[in-house]
Simulated scan of single mutants.
Amino acid sequence: MAIQLNEDYIIRLLKRLLETPSPTGYCGTIMRLIREEAEQLGFTMAYTPKGNGIIAVEGADQGPAIGISAHVDTLGAMVRAVKPGGTLRFTLIGGYMLGSVENEYCVVHTRDGRAYTGTVLTNKPSVHVFTDARDLKREEAVMEVRLDEPVKSAADVKALGIGAGDFISFDPRAQLLANGLIKSRHLDDKAGVAAVFGMLEWLKREKAQPARPLRILFSTYEEVGHGAAWLPADISELLAVDMGAIGDDLSCTEYDVSICAKDSSGPYDYAMTTRLIELAEREGLSYAVDVYPHYGSDASASLRGGSNIRAALLGPGVHASHAMERTHRQAILHTASLLGAYVREPAAAYE
């Protein structure tokens, strides 16, 4: 059966995902969006104790399930302290260059549900004032958030309900261009989530069944390393859907579905990776096979957590990952197509 994806559905959902703040640890709102979307397609989503979501899809045959993971959590920050002058010192959530968020707009989310906008700056933000403004090393100690409120002291800030432990999300600045390019923060991994839903929408619309049961896991702690550390016991193999890296000696582009053969956690399963390559060839998809030197995935976390599974990693190519990211519609669509082809196939032979 040829896979006919609903491109408009995938891109509309991606836009909603990008516009929903979800730094790691602050994923309640986006998980409600995910659950409601699943229910509209006719699926039920259950929650794990730490807030991951799981959708079960029946297969044509019984037996060990295929797992598919994608993470909804993103890079972000947390208020570390309120400074005497009314700015906020913050600590990073996830691994990114501080220069990539300098001068970025952000939102501070308080524990009682209020939200305040601000801007990420250094504590020497003007070349007209500070002689070392250009040369200042960008590190946590010199970074702060300037609130868009008339605050002049720590007491003023605390009166707003802002304090240590409050989450900070960055403005995604999402733009979906007419030529198919999509630039935004947090395409890692909201582009992957949209691809997974594109596959689910196709399964439901075509009344197609996967060859084996599916367990779709939406994780909420991937950016800090333990998103899918626990998996349902019936999963025998896991496809982690996450962004494909671009640059240096990597062959992936923003138009490709990336198939990762090895990352910092080691090689991925030989038979699964080979099957992905074969299916990409069969389906006429634009793909690349690469080795990521500075990367880990939900599959990595699951294996480290003791899961007795095989695992593979794929996803849309994303340029400038963990900074101002960019991909193309084709990469997302080809990722969804490859997922659809894989789950319709019998299990890959283990060699």
Rank of each mutant, 00 (worst) to 15 (best):
P23R: 02
L214A: 08
G165H: 12
V129R: 08
E351V: 00
I30S: 03
F43G: 03
L136P: 02
L214V: 08
T273Y: 10
A194P: 01
R185G: 01
A311H: 04
A211M: 09
D132S: 08
S321L: 10
I30V: 15
A174Y: 12
G59S: 05
E102T: 08
G305M: 02
R138M: 15
A240V: 13
A191W: 01
L339F: 10
I246V: 13
V241H: 07
P232Y: 05
A164M: 14
G94M: 07
G306C: 12
S286Y: 03
D189F: 09
G113H: 06
A341I: 02
Q40K: 15
R215N: 07
E139D: 14
A46F: 01
R12Q: 15
T253N: 06
A320E: 06
I93A: 05
I11N: 05
H328D: 09
L98M: 14
A154T: 04
G99I: 06
E102C: 11
Y255M: 09
A233G: 04
A133Y: 07
D298P: 10
A154E: 14
L75P: 01
T273W: 10
E36Y: 03
K204E: 14
R329G: 06
E201N: 10
I259A: 00
L33D: 06
T87R: 05
A2H: 11
K50D: 10
S126H: 15
G99S: 12
G305R: 03
A195L: 08
G180C: 10
E223S: 00
A331S: 15
R35K: 09
R304M: 13
T20S: 06
A311T: 05
Q4R: 10
P21D: 02
T91M: 09
E104M: 13
Y295C: 05
G161W: 12
L17D: 10
K124G: 03
D112S: 14
A233T: 12
V127W: 09
K152F: 15
M97K: 11
M272D: 12
V145W: 13
D269C: 05
G305S: 05
P210L: 09
A280Y: 06
S219W: 02
N6Y: 07
Q330V: 00
A240N: 14
S184G: 06
H226G: 02
D256M: 06
T44Q: 13
K152H: 15
F170P: 02
E237Y: 11
E139G: 00
K262Q: 13
E223H: 00
V72S: 13
P21S: 03
Y287W: 15
D73P: 01
R173V: 07
Y287T: 08
L239H: 04
K152L: 14
T110R: 01
S153R: 02
T110H: 04
L136V: 11
C106P: 00
G165R: 13
L333V: 06
E39V: 00
T335K: 09
P150G: 09
M143W: 10
R205K: 14
F170W: 04
G51W: 12
F218Q: 01
G161F: 11
I66E: 04
G340Y: 04
K137P: 15
P267K: 04
A174C: 07
K190N: 07
R282I: 01
D256E: 14
D189Q: 07
L121D: 07
D156N: 12
H334S: 13
